[in-house]
Write a protein that binds this DNA or RNA. Structure first.
Lengths: 333, 333
DNA sequence: TACTCGTACTAGAGCGCGCTAGTAGAGCGC
DNA sequence: GCGCTCTACTAGCGCGCTCTAGTACGAGTA
């Protein structure tokens, strides 16, 4: 920066002004300085910039590398953040890199706020985080934490899915649980409630699982094994999310069970995977773009008015009927 | 930091030493300082740390948000980077955020080196980048750029896939091109060469496309339309990558074309999607973990010995035969 | 006793910016 | 001529840390 200033024959301060796009420099000098900077190959150093001004205007985003729905969210986040003149830092959690580590990385890079995409972490982590900084949790509810919360009305989505299945004549509807995954508890409760409401309480069955393909595959194997021992398959399965649904779909189809002729499968998320399966996955759509927008807006608004209390945004889910759900099978002879 | 120093009754410098895990502090003081820091809630500020020491020990990773293979790579990168005592900053390219922008963000955050995952960008961007910093390109070759390069032997992978198909009796084998996607040119050339080698030159057909599901879907539609006009479908298709293969698979299956009975489909990458399809995708496996490891190692080694010339790592691909490829269909009456 | 040496610690410069408080000069009304 | 305002620019401190060059002191050695 000093080099640029010298070569352009101005002070460092003026170069600074120009690079911040602030008024206070003549158009002529502005052009000259920018040209010189370009020649030298100067680029402002965010670390120093960050240090010098108190604020970093940077939002940190923690996501799970393999969660396809997160990539949809990230796309929305970039768009909205840019619109508001902030920056984004991504930090991924992987099997070998805990959420805590990912978040620490963000904080130590001076993110002013942290957006957690579908965190799986201990509630205590979020509580602590909420006390320390502005935090927004997407999908994952943490009751007493000082954290903004963006999610879809899980109950509503599940209800739509269940009504759809019941309307198609299904009674033996099973649910694969999402474990500690975001929204799982609500989905499970809503599943149970819907079964009760339709008078199918005795048919309710919840399989333990999580939000990965693996749990769908495992549940599929379990169901097949049961069938081979004479227990009928459920006629429909509400999976914990799309990935889980995909795993299940694959396992069943491979074993010769036809979807939806023999079993209907419904997912959750409408990640861009869902329309990929040959038959298309019936699923509950969460609007990733809108969720991202809300999350960013919550973070930014709270940064700019620190006295604001954390808020909650509940978006409407929408059942998308594709090929993986159909009428209940004829009772085979 | 000053607060910690004061409260613990030591100098700032000593606190610094302790937080850098350097020798020069007694065990007793060390414990006391760490305890005090914890009470106050102090955490070192990377921005300042970055600024103060010349080196950031940070590698920037540019990736494409929706490219599932990239998430596999990222996982490997985190692991290797941590082992070497560096940090990672991620920056995603999306439809609304160009690669150039993503890279700029990394550089301005003082990344010492940049790893580009399957860049689609203009060669000139990479050339310029290579002149400015240590850069590693994964999958995408840029002939004259001063950039390390990690990729699999595309030609070898394609050859294995083609030999596999020919062995199964296929002759009318089409290829969906990956457009400007990384490795596409090599794959296309290898496809043509293999057709020639097997004496099938006259059957060769390359469909324009890219590395997304959409191009698979579109090619699928095109093929179906041709069939309806009386032109036979190819008996096998080598897709540009897995995502493209998935799109094709979906479109064909939906239209009642059975895979692999009517058409065999082969992908490329073996991203974790591939085993998801009900029938499993036959594909050419690239070892993401190993690629990630190489890329990180190249970057770090060149950072530590700047006189080193950029290198190239060619990894062996491996054909993984799953359910989407099978013997050539009986000629239908 | 005088000297090295090693350990435990400190003073203070400087990393590359942003920002506040300032100056110099041009233009204008009276 | 004076004071005023406005634009274009500058001096220099400070952000929170690292790092070099030190000091203080006790133990070991001649």
């Amino acid at each position: 920066m000093a080099d640029v200033a010298e070569k352009a024959g101005v002070s460092r301060a003026l170069v600074s002004i120009i690079f911040r796009n602030q008024p206070g420099a003549s158009e002529e000098t502005r052009q000259r300085v920018l040209r010189v900077a370009d020649e030298i190959g100067y680029r402002p150093d965010s670390a120093a910039r960050l240090l010098a001004r108190g604020r970093s205007r940077t939002l940190g985003v923690m996501f799970t590398v393999h969660q396809t729905f997160h990539t949809d969210l990230i796309e929305g986040i970039y768009a909205e953040v840019e619109r508001l003149g902030y920056e984004v830092l991504l930090s991924g959690a992987t099997p070998g890199r805990s959420e805590e580590k990912a978040v620490e990385a963000l904080l130590s890079h001076r993110c002013e706020a942290v957006i957690l995409l579908g965190s799986f972490a201990e509630p205590s982590l979020l509580e602590e985080l909420g006390g320390r900084t502005v935090a927004v949790s997407v999908s994952r509810r943490v009751p007493h934490a000082h954290v903004d919360f963006v999610h879809t009305a899980e109950g509503k989505g599940v209800r739509q899915a269940m009504d759809h299945l019941v309307e198609l004549g299904h009674r033996r509807i099973a649910h694969i649980d999402g474990g500690s995954g975001p929204g799982s508890a609500e989905r499970r409760r809503a599943y149970r409630a819907a079964m009760r409401r339709h008078g199918l309480e005795s048919e309710a069955r919840v399989f333990p699982g999580d939000h990965t393909e693996r749990s769908g595959i495992e549940t599929g194997r379990l169901l097949l094994a049961e069938r081979d021992q004479g227990n009928p398959l459920p006629t429909a399965v509400l999976a914990g999310n799309d990935r889980c649904a995909m795993g299940l779909l694959m396992t069943l189809t491979r074993a010769g069970v036809e979807v939806p002729r023999d079993v209907s499968v419904v997912g959750y998320d409408d990640s861009h995977l869902s329309h990929l399966m040959p038959i298309g996955l019936t699923t509950v759509r969460q609007d990733a773009g809108l969720m991202a927008e809300c999350a960013v807006r919550f973070a930014v608004e709270r940064l700019e008015k620190p006295e604001l209390e954390p808020r909650e945004a509940v978006l409407d889910p929408k059942l998308v009927v594709r090929g993986s759900s159909g009428p209940v099978p004829e009772p085979s002879a």
